[in-house]
Amino acid sequence: MKAAVIVFPGSNCDTDMFHAVKDFTAAEVVEFVPHTANSVADYDAIFIPGGFSYGDYLRTGAIARFAPVMKSVSKEAAKGKTIVGVCNGFQILQEAGLLPGAMKRNKDLKFICRTVGLKIENHNTRFTSEYAKGDVLQVPIAHGEGNFECDDEALQKLHDNNQIVFTYVNDVNGSKSQIAGIQNEEGNVLGMMPHPERAMEAWLGSEDGRQLFTSVYRHWREMNVVTN
């Protein structure tokens, strides 16, 4: 598997994401790809890390989605490539129209950095196949604008298509239906506010994020490696 970690000006979880993929999956290649790159077609999986792209100016993710690299990301998404957006990466994917909904400020209007309980709502995805339905993970959140919002119709669609992948065990930020992570209808684009790349080593608090990365790798392997 060749993996890309996209770096926008203001991304700051890029190195953490890089280590999560490089150190905990068997990916052959993991590379940083700058926002100015014209193509990500060479990669099998594309990770959009957290941070404050463009200082969160205007609206989170609103400027990043116009960066040159995003054209190619949309194209690869349409081809079915695996795309994972975490935190600001999720917000960028929403702005780019690859995932539904939008983020409001957290209900108490404060940035929250805390490890929270995260429930697996759908384990039949390429992102969560190594978890079991109902598993409760401990994963950090670190965001000021993670209050998921969408209209009723969109919410119904998310439910009907099993697009809700993760929910918060407790209502931490006001998100509708306590949604923490969703995938697109086709099931190849995931956005989540919690940081699985920060939950890779038990002595740093939790290793519950590992299976997300190994699930992505496993999916690629099953699709691409012919076994005897």
């Binding site: 940035f111 950095c113 805390r114 920060r198 740093l204 608090g205």
Partner: peptide, 25 residues
């Protein structure tokens, strides 16, 4: 206070705020 600070980015924080001292690997 420290709930509002991102104390984990760079994923090196072994001992988070609230103990006598913070520890980073």
């Amino acid at each position: 206070v420290y709930d509002q600070y991102d104390h984990m980015v760079q994923t090196n924080t072994v001992v988070v705020p609230g103990s006598d001292a913070a520890v980073l690997r």
